[in-house]
């Protein structure tokens, strides 16, 4: 139990998907201009990462490993993720039209979010059980959402700041992200002892 909790904290904060592993940076830079869009993207991505992690785990164990098709891993994983995104879209549309209205526009973008593929590949390399894999994926995705929301909050303030013209836009966002990454480095070490 304690080990699982430490593993989840490690996945969410210490080895944060965005700030330590550098996955999902396109969405990190692209859709964090406002807190509510960042939160929406975070929720949609969390859902897809968790669902596709389970599906990829099953594909790896029951198809790729079982038939020695390891070389098809990249191709099948990306297709599984694309299907998971479609599937998520269908389910959300059926179950909750309100949620669909909130998340709908982000869903197609998620297929090319490397955080999804990255987490799936990390799981396979980590040799985890299905439950461990699901928890790891969920914790990583939660860390992703947290950083998205924090960064969107920072950028909302940044709009009001007077930034030199040459630094306006992406460069100042990168520098702020660097400071945020420094802050998150303070978490390293907490999942030990």
């Amino acid at each position: 139990m304690k080990e699982t909790a430490l593993m989840m904290i490690g996945a969410a904060l210490v080895n944060n998907v965005i700030l330590a592993r550098f996955l999902g940076l396109c969405s990190f830079m692209g859709v964090t201009t406002r807190i509510d869009t960042a939160a929406g993207m975070g929720m949609a991505t969390t859902f897809v990462i968790t669902v596709s992690a389970m599906a990829d785990w099953a594909v790896q164990h029951y198809v790729l490993d079982a038939y020695g098709l390891g070389f098809l891993r990249t191709v099948t994983f990306i297709l599984v993720i694309a299907s998971a995104v479609q599937f998520t879209e269908m389910i959300i549309r059926k179950v909750s039209p309100t949620l669909f209205q909130m998340l709908g526009i982000y869903l197609p973008l998620i297929t090319t979010n490397c955080a999804v593929l990255g987490v799936a590949l990390l799981l396979v390399e980590g040799n985890m059980s299905l439950i461990g894999a699901t928890l790891f994926a969920f914790a990583s995705a939660a860390g992703y959402s947290l950083v998205m929301v924090i960064f969107a909050g920072l950028r909302e303030r940044l709009v009001l700041a007077q930034v030199p013209r040459l630094f306006a836009g992406p460069p100042i966002a990168f520098i702020v992200a660097g400071l945020l990454a420094m802050a998150f480095m303070g978490f390293s070490g907490i999942s030990t002892v």
């Binding site: 330590a20 040459l166 460069p171 480095m185």
Partner: peptide
Amino acid sequence: LMMVLPPGGFFVTGYLVVAKRLLDL
């Protein structure tokens, strides 16, 4: 050390985008 750690990646990329803008200007 900071430069080879994650924050350095963000800082250097940010400043290099500025450098390219400066050269273009």
